[in-house]
Design a protein around this nucleic acid. Structure first.
Lengths: 183, 183
DNA sequence: TTGCAATAGTTTCGACTCGCTACTATTAAT
DNA sequence: ATTAATAGTAGCGAGTCGAAACTATTGCAA
């Protein structure tokens, strides 16, 4: 008979919240994993759209990610592009159909929007601390948008990544990168 | 190209945290759903251990819950007891083996314990608000321990449930009930 | 009391996730 | 020139998931 501690309560709330969100996904054309993968691809920059990146983001194996991506490709929501420079790697881009599917508004989004600004800021910060601590234990990648990365340099119009040595458009600077590192 | 708003960030953090937690479960003898169901049963009172209650708690259907419970029963982690009063209903109790499996300490637990007391209290409260708001939309049951329920009455040694008209031991008053209602 | 309707749980189906292992192609390092 | 590392995939077995169809009870009304 386990005790129900404050910690256990938080664990349960996180799990239940994720399940409530997942249950909503099932109402749409995609299952929760497919939706999460598609949503990630739509926000990731062009250096972060490979199966292995999706696997890292979704905390799963390359094999599982590969299957999920193949399922999305079968549905014409994403399309694969083989790299010219490295013939092993593949990049998946979201199609027009794919962006349409992502328009579905979610109940969790509404509910989070109803929080007071200071509450949601505190929530984001606590959750981020938890995710980072969990990632550290398995050396997983944090992911994050270019503009907040230590390799990012602000130039006149656009941005520049010191790590990959490429310039980035304004739009790209707001995308998610698998190489993201805290300042 | 979806924008990544503060709300989207929180959604992603919740999803990733749940996935990080789930990934840990896979290292053990059970999959995440089985572990969640077993963990619930170990903390639920004797009126809340039926397949339909597990389904409500895990935000899934009775059919799915039934399958998961059968899988746990095959592994001798829970055992089914048919009710005398209502021959349709079944109660699953956690076996000795079941409680042993639950002893596994989780990384998420450690990480939550590392939070400052005031931070974790704020976190619990925000998450609870989100879960309640989500549940309201699908009239799902909140669940919670007897002692904090509006039907609970404190008696001399033990407690009493006004709704079910039964007296509760001290230990039972700390268990999860599917009939739980906010004060 | 008979006759439904609601409830509790199960089964089956098809699509898919999931970790795993084994495998192919390519690229990097010695 | 080997050998090792990396990127991605196929196939396996167990199991999740919702949905629909099904059995066995119990509740309710006319």
């Amino acid at each position: 008979m386990s005790e129900t501690t404050e910690t256990q309560v938080i664990r349960d709330l996180i799990d239940r919240l994720a399940r409530l969100n997942a249950a909503e996904d099932w109402n749409g054309p995609l299952n929760p994993s497919q939706f999460a993968a598609l949503s990630y691809l739509a926000r990731a920059n062009r250096f972060s759209r490979a199966p292995s990146h999706v696997a890292d983001y979704l905390i799963t194996t390359r094999g599982t990610a590969s299957q999920t991506l193949k399922a999305l490709a079968r549905k014409d929501l994403i399309i694969e592009t083989r790299s010219e420079t490295d013939k092993r790697s593949i990049r998946y881009d979201v199609t027009r159909n794919g962006t349409d599917v992502l328009q579905d508004t979610s109940g969790l989004t509404d509910v989070i929007n109803d929080l007071d600004a200071d509450v949601s800021e505190a929530l984001a910060s606590s959750l981020k601390a938890l995710v980072l601590a969990m990632l550290q234990r398995r050396d997983g990648r944090p992911f994050g948008i270019c503009r907040t990365c230590k390799h990012y340099r602000n130039t006149d119009a656009d941005g520049f990544c010191q790590l990959l040595q490429v310039s980035l458009t304004k739009s790209e600077s707001a995308q998610i990168c698998h190489e993201h590192a805290e300042l």
